[in-house]
Nucleic acid binder design. Structure first.
Lengths: 153, 153
DNA sequence: TATTGTTATACTCTATAACTATA
DNA sequence: TATAGTTATAGAGTATAACAATA
């Protein structure tokens, strides 16, 4: 880590920090829900498509597991995405039973458009923070990234 | 408006920071979805109940607006919560048309149980971070709080 | 006449169970 | 026989439109 060692946070604060941090996250997730465009994509569809862009193609069953929906639900979701031209199935060279799924160019463009809109909104909100808080947030970004990484598992 | 002159954070980094920060948030929200207990409460039910605990009682239409669902959907959701003993309607002294909604003791207990479970999980993840990142995160908590506050509006 | 909330109806998304195809 | 995925059917949650009650 290239972050300078800070000797200012006693270990005893950890539990309390996390309850408050969790409360902050709850409000972020709540705000996230409100920000999503209504008629465009279902919640699971948006996250599945985002995952395909982020992590590359994946097997249908793996997507179902990762998004915590049943296999039939993912079958239908992928079919919907395919009908919308946002994703497509492709066969596995080693196992004919497998349905691999990848995002299309149109799907990637949609994900990027949505991400850009969120980033723009966040940039706007960020700019209203006092400089010291902006700096604190920038310094915590690697930690947030590591934590999000750990959460995904 | 506060001063935009920053001594420590170059303005050129802001846009990039926010794109990355937004990506981090996307992964947090995705992980949040996976963590929620399946058969217990619907997503909107959980957020509505959490809001009632956090911000106190509210009018039905206001809840519908805040959660971005239609008025009939909120009517039915409140009825469901009422049937489960988690929330209850109460009349408005000044306007007989209004349906005010508040959380019950059981509803509050449920919300707190879920929050405690999330905080415990977060504490566990947090403990795996190196001390420098833990400190950076603790230092950024007020900024995250302010940002979540701004996001809610 | 406008506002607050409910009822009626239809649609989307999801789960479970039964099925097909491949290993 | 086990695994990957699909099809069949039913239920939960939501939206729009029409309605009732109060302001």
């Amino acid at each position: 880590m290239d972050i300078t060692q800070t000797a200012g946070a006693p270990a005893g604060d950890t539990a309390l920090d996390c309850a408050e941090f969790s409360a902050v996250l709850e409000r972020f997730v709540s705000a996230w829900r409100r920000f999503s465009v209504p008629g465009e994509l279902s919640s699971t569809a948006a996250f599945t498509l985002g995952r395909l862009v982020r992590d590359g193609s994946s097997r249908l069953t793996e997507l179902a597991t990762l998004e915590h929906v049943s296999q039939p639900a993912m079958t239908q979701l992928v079919s919907r995405l395919e009908a919308q031209g946002l994703a497509e199935r492709f066969s596995d060279p080693g196992d004919a039973r497998v349905a691999n799924v990848r995002v299309t160019t149109a799907g990637q463009a949609l994900v990027e458009r949505r991400r850009a809109a969120r980033a723009a909104r966040l940039t706007q909100l960020f700019s209203t923070l006092p400089p010291a808080q902006q700096a604190a947030l920038a310094a915590a970004l690697p930690a947030l990234d590591a934590l999000a990484d750990a959460s995904a598992r």
